[in-house]
Design a protein around this nucleic acid. Structure first.
Length: 466
DNA sequence: CTCCTCACG
DNA sequence: ACGTACGTGAGGAGA
């Protein structure tokens, strides 16, 4: 919100916003005199308007203590870049290309048709018309029958082709999005330089473009191979520090819920606790599966839970999901009370705020359209959590940047991935910087529960050891 | 250009 | 009855 009022095209003239967009996305060396003149004019014209907006929304605090001092930090991170091993990626490209070819031929053979697997329209035609696989009931609404992941996973029970399509898609995605594109963007030192957009999200998070370095794979083994190609600078180690469950800890802090607060104060496993409370399974004899279902419930709380969403996530029916949610709120009474208060305030004010006063308008909270209102309510719950987490890591980044400079350290902060920071750290500085970064993250502000940051160090972004 | 899909937190 | 989990960005298809 802050930045949407700062630079958002919808709030400025198209001409000026175009200039601002072009300017912000371009290296200074490649910016000509004419563009600089236009940019200067844009700044001169926009400044008084935007300053008034910031004042009107009482966003001076968040602007002056967080977003303004963060800007030069982000600039340094962009210029520093992240080192990649292009040889590793180029070799992966060859392997992936062969795999894609092989799986593609297999799909053609098993389905009995040759078609463009990457076309959802052609794929849907083959699966549902030509092969006669069961059309998903709930996804028949649009023009094209959905062939999204969850649909194909359902179909995998009936036929082997959907599973092969999912594999094909995974391989194609990794190849085109990361393996083939990143080496093209590396500079002479093998470093890639993202652009952080500080003024593009609704919650106050950063985003990362050209390339997006905030969505580098990690969740699958094959994806993690790509992370291994992100390597330390010569003479350095990579150091990564990430917050543990910061949004749920903020829920504990904001709500003051006794059970949640006590759990974090005593270092309990929160997903195991939720599983015991909601599913009634004793912590001692709990399966991974049960804990994972509880983890989905906890995620749901942060997202602004709904029976529909939880049901879809867990693959259960909505009535069962509703029971889980009711049980959750009976156990975590303070969480329910907090959400009730928050929604009341949002209905009155038609906006939510983060801990540092970052504002997001939620006009749809008053809508007579239940669908829009539902969106608005979930947004109202999620934004203070996601947005405050964004405030906190930004503040920590500013302080870390200052301390690294004050102590004349050669370590460099290179990336932010929402709840994680990445650094290039000379071997001799590892112990000191590990301590510095962890401490700044964990003590960035005092809450009524501890903030916990985990730190890992290694030669690449995949093989980190605490 | 929009839509679909899927990578991340 | 309806129908979405919150927040992003990128590549490919198809118009």
């Amino acid at each position: 919100m802050l930045y949407s009022y700062l630079i958002n095209p919808t709030h400025a003239s198209h001409r000026l916003s175009d200039v601002a967009a072009r300017f912000s996305d371009q290296p200074l060396q490649e910016t000509g005199e004419r563009e600089l003149t236009e940019a200067a004019h844009a700044v001169e014209t926009l400044t008084p308007v935007l300053r008034d907006d910031v004042n009107a929304l009482n966003e001076r605090e968040v602007y002056e203590t967080i977003d303004l001092p963060l800007a030069p930090v982000l600039l340094r991170m962009e210029k520093e870049g992240v080192r990649i091993d292009s040889a590793v990626l180029n070799s992966m490209s060859v392997t992936l290309g062969a795999e894609i070819e092989r799986v593609g031929e297999e799909i053609f053979a098993r389905s009995g048709h040759r078609f463009n697997i990457q076309s959802p329209r052609q794929l849907g035609d083959v699966l549902f018309n030509k092969m006669g696989l069961p059309r998903p009931l709930k996804y028949g609404k649009g023009k094209v029958v959905s062939t999204a992941q969850d649909v194909l996973e359902e179909l995998a029970a009936h036929n082997e082709v959907p599973r092969m399509v999912l594999e094909y898609r995974q391989l194609a995605k990794l190849k085109s999005n990361y393996v083939d594109s990143l080496p093209l963007l590396a500079d002479a030192e093998g470093r890639v330089h993202t652009t952080f957009n500080q003024v593009g999200t609704a919650t106050g998070r950063l985003s990362s473009t050209n390339p997006n370095l905030q969505n580098i794979p990690i969740r699958t083994e094959l994806g993690r191979e790509i992370r291994a190609a992100f390597i330390a600078a010569p003479g350095c180690q990579l150091l990564s520090a990430d917050y543990s469950q910061i949004e749920l800890r903020l829920m504990a802090h904001f709500s003051g819920d006794p059970l949640l607060t006590q759990a974090y104060k005593t270092g309990q496993d929160i997903h195991t606790l939720t599983a015991s409370e909601v599913f009634g399974v004793p912590a001692g004899q709990m399966s991974k599966e049960t804990r994972n279902r509880a983890k989905a419930v906890n995620f749901g709380i942060v997202y602004g839970i709904s029976p529909f969403g939880l049901a879809a996530q867990l693959g259960i029916d909505q009535h069962e999901a509703r029971l889980y949610i009711e049980t959750y709120f009976e156990r975590y009474k303070g969480v329910r009370a907090f959400i009730d208060r928050l929604l009341d305030e949002t209905r009155r004010e038609q906006r939510v705020k983060t801990m540092f006063g970052r504002v997001r308008p939620i006009p749809d909270i008053q809508s007579r359209n239940a669908n829009l209102r539902g969106f608005a309510e979930r947004t109202a719950v999620n934004t203070p959590l996601q947005g405050t987490a964004a405030d906190l890591i930004k503040l920590a980044m500013i302080r870390i940047d200052t301390k690294l400079a004050d102590r004349k350290l050669q370590s460099r902060m290179t990336l932010q991935v929402h709840d994680e920071l990445l650094f290039d750290v000379p071997h001799a500085e590892v112990d000191e910087v590990r301590e510095l970064v962890q401490s700044e993250l964990e003590h960035v502000i005092e809450l009524n529960v501890p903030l916990v940051a985990d730190v890992g160090v290694g030669a690449n972004w995949r093989d980190l050891k605490s």
